[in-house]
Design a protein around this nucleic acid. Sequence first.
RNA 1: GCGGGCGUGGCGGAACCGGUAGACGCACUGGAUUUAGGAUCCAGCGAUGCAGAUCGUGGGGGUUCGAAUCCCUCCGCCCGCACCA
Length: 865
Amino acid sequence: MRKVEKAAEQKTTAPYDFRATEAKWQRLWRESGVFEAKAEPGRPKYYVLEMFPYPSGKLHVGHIRNYTMGDLVARYRRAQGFNTLHPMGWDAFGLPAENAAIAGGVHPARWTLDNILTMREELERMGFAYDWPREIATCHPEYYRHEQKMFLDFLRAGLAYRKESWVNWDPAENTVLANEQVIDGRGWRSGAIVEKRLLSQWFLRITAFAEELLEALGGLERWPERVRLMQENWIGRSEGARVVFEVDGGVGPVEVFTTRHDTLFGASFLALSPNHPLALKLAEKDPELARFIAECDRLGTSEATIEAAEKRGYKTGFLARHPLEESRRIPLYVANFVLMEYGTGAIFGCPAHDQRDLEFARKYALPVIPVVLPEGEDAAGFAIGEEAFVGEGVHINSGFLDGLSVAAAKKAAAARLEALGRGESATAWRLRDWGVSRQRYWGTPIPVIHCKICGIVPVAEKDLPVRLPEEVNFDIPGNPLDHHPTWKHVSCPRCAKAALRDTDTLDTFFESSWYFLRFCSPRAAAAFSAQEVGYWMPVDQYIGGVEHAILHLLYSRFFTRALRHCGYELDCDEPFEGLFTQGMVCHQTYQSSAGEWLFPEEVSSDGKGRLVDRGGALVTVGRLEKMSKSKRNIVGLERIVETYGADTARFYLLSDSPPERDLEWTESGIEGIWRYVNRLWRLVNEPPLPLPPAGAQPPQGEGPRHSLARRIHKTIAAVTEDLDKFRFNRAVARIRELTNAIEEAFRSEGGGAEVLRFGLETLCRLLAPMMPHLAEEMWQALGGKGLLAAQAWPKADPELAREEEVTIAVQVNGKLRATLMMPRDSAKGELESAALALPQVARWLAGRAPKKTVVVPNRIVNIVG
RNA sequence: GCGGGCGUGGCGGAACCGGUAGACGCACUGGAUUUAGGAUCCAGCGAUGCAGAUCGUGGGGGUUCGAAUCCCUCCGCCCGCACCA
C-alpha cells in the first residue's frame, strides 16, 4: 500500500506546457470567431475599450496591465450575456516616429508600421479577446481622410479658426520644440537657448463648449471622482469682474480680470503679462523692459516652469488711476507670473489678500493695505504679516464698501464699476482654445490652401484625403512638409493661381478624439455609420492611465459635441459612460558606476547579495520609478511571456496591487504566480481523488463537504462583486482562497466528491477572464463541453452561501477579550447575556457592574464597565 | 507655484456603512521528501516580553462605548499643468 502511494506521488506531471496550450487556444478562438462582434439591435451590448497604444516599438508591462484589465472586463461581460465589442488599434501618428527618422534615417511610416507588426504579434501572444478584424491605424489615409473632413466641417461651423500663439523655438535647429524637448530652457538636441515665438496657427473653439463640458461632468457617475474634479479645475470657471484702469501718460487703459473686486481698495500695483500688447508697446521705447521681456520669454511656454519660477517684476514707471478713487495712483509693472492666456493678461495686486501678490509686494516694497477684517480682529490693530488673509470678513479702508461682507462688497463694487463705465461682472475660464497646428511631418495634413488672392481656401471634399508625401527629407532642420520641393505647391481651388498648402499637421490628440467612433464601423465609407454608432456607443467601460485624465478625455468629450453640432449623426454627448484609470507599473532603477542607466536584465546578483552589471562592477540601486525608456527600467514583455507564458503575466498584473494604484514589477512575484499556475494544473490534471463524471449534481443539504459548497457560492458572489467594482486584486485573493479550500476538501474524509467537481468547474469559470488559456485547458481536462470562452458566468445561490453561525467579537471597554460563536441573526438580548456569561468578561470587569452594553448583531458586543 | 492623489508587517496589499487590524500573496525560518538543486508538502512569521500582557495602521491632537476608517494639523512621496502620448 505504502509503495503504491509512493509510486503515485512520483508520477509528477511535467510543468504546465504554456507554450503549446496558449498557442492552441489562441488558434481555436481565432478560428471560432467568438470575439468578433456584430450589432444585434435589441440585444444588450457592452463596449469595452482600452486606450489604444502609440506604436513605440515594444509593448511593456504597463500596456499589458491596461489591456489585461480590459480583457478581463470584456470576457466577464461576454460571459454575463452581453453582446461585447472589444476592439484594438494604433494611435499611429506622433513625434517619436519623426525622431527615429532624424536619428536613424528610417522613414516614419516604415518605422511605425514595423512597430505595429511587432506589437500586434505581442498582443496576439497575450491571448486578448480582441475583435481583430476591426483593427485601425490612424496614420492610414482611410482613417485620416475623415479627420480632414471633420476639420473642414469645424471650419465651416466656426469651430476652427486661426490665431497667433506662442511656441518654443529652437534657433539652432530652426524648429518648434515640444515642451518635453525643452530641457532647462534649452533644446534637447542642439542645446541652444529656446525662445518663445509667435506663430499663426489653427485653433479649435473648445471654449464654446466650456459651460456644457463643465455641467455634464455631474452626470458622469461612473467616472472617478478625482478625474471629474481635475477636469472641473481645468475648465476652471471663475466668477469675477473686468475692471478698467486708465493709465497716465496716454498709453491707454488696462483691463484686468479679478475674482476679488471687493478688495480693489487694497490694490497697490497693476501687473501686465510680459506678452501683453501694452507691455510690448512700452518695450519699444524702453530697452530695459525689452530685455526683461526677452528674459521672461526664455522660460518657454510651459505653465509649470513659468509658475514655479521666481516671481519677478519690472517697474514701467507709469501710474494707473484707481477706478474707484479718483486721486489714487498705483504703479504699473510687467511681471513674469502673469499669464497672457488667462483672463485679460493683466492683474491688479492686492497684497493683503493674495499670497502671490503679498510676496511680490514685499519684494518690491509696495504698500500692504488690509481691506478685509477677519472676525474677532480690530481694525486698528490688524496687520498682515507673512500670510495674506484670504478668508471671510468685513470690509475696512474701502470707502463705500466698508462694513460689507466679501460677497456683498463684490456685488456693490461691480455695480459701481458698471455705473462708472469702468468694468462689470464677468466670468473667466481657465480653459483655452485647443491649438491643433503642429510644424511636423508625421501627422494628418491640414486640408487648407493659402492663396494670396483668395486667402484661406478649404480643400474640396472630393480631393480628400490630402496625403502626406512619401519622399521626405529629415536632414534639413525645420518642418519637412514646408521644405518639400513640390508638395505644398498647388493651384488655388478658387482662382486657380499658384497657391500653397498649409504645411502644418494636426495635433495627434485629434486622432484619439474620435477613434472610439471609428471602431463601431471601421471600414465604413463615411467616418462612421450612424446605425452602428447608434448601437454601440457610448463606450460602457473605458480604461487607461490617469495621465490622460484631462486632455485626451476632455478633447474626446468636446469632439462628440462638436461633431453633433456639425450635423454628424450621433446621439450621445458623452463618449465614455464608465471610466477607469489604472495606476502605472513601476520598477527599480539601476545605474552603473559611470552613472548610466541600466536595463533590469543587465543587472544580476553576484552571489553575495550585491548587484553587479555585466562587467561585474557594482550597480547603484535607485528609486522605484514609473517605467520609462529614459531610465531604462523597462521590463520587456517577450522575456516574461517566453519564460512564464501569457496567463502568468496576466494574473500577476491583476494580483496584489489595486488596479488604480501603481504596481511594482518584481521577479519573485511572477514566480509565485507561476507556481500557482502549476498547482491549478496539477489539481485538475491529476486530482488527488477520482472525480464523478461531468454533469453530476452536487448533493443538497448537510454533507461532509457541505462547507465547501457554501464556500463556492460565497466565492462566486464575492468575485462577481469585486469584478463589478474593479477590485481585481481582491477577486484574485478570493479565488486563491477557494483553491486552498478545494485542496483542503480533497484531503478531508468523506463523500460528496460532486462538490469537489463543482468547485473545480467554478474555479475554471472564475479564472476564465483572468487566465483564459489555462482556464480553457482545465475546463477541457474536466470534460467540459465547448469553449469556456462561450460559457456563462456562474451564479451564486444566496441560500446555499449563507452561514448558519457567526463569530461575535466580545469587547470589554473597547478591547477585544473573547470571541463567541452564535447562530446568525441572534437577538441582541441573547448576544448580551451570552457575552456576560463569559469568564473572560467577568475577569476583565473585575467585579465592576457593566454600565452600558453596545450590541451590534452578527458583529460585536462591547461591555463598558 | 497651482490642481489631483497616496502613506497599514521585511515587501505588495486586505479590512464591506466606525465594529476581531494584517485576508490573499511574496520574501524569510524550521521540518518532511530528495544523491543534489529545484519543485512539492507540513508548520511558523507585526513589535516587545519566559509568560500574563502591552504596544501597533506616516507624526501630533480631537470626536466616539469603539477609529486604518470621521475631523483638525504637520510630514513624506507620486502624478498632471495645454507641442510626449
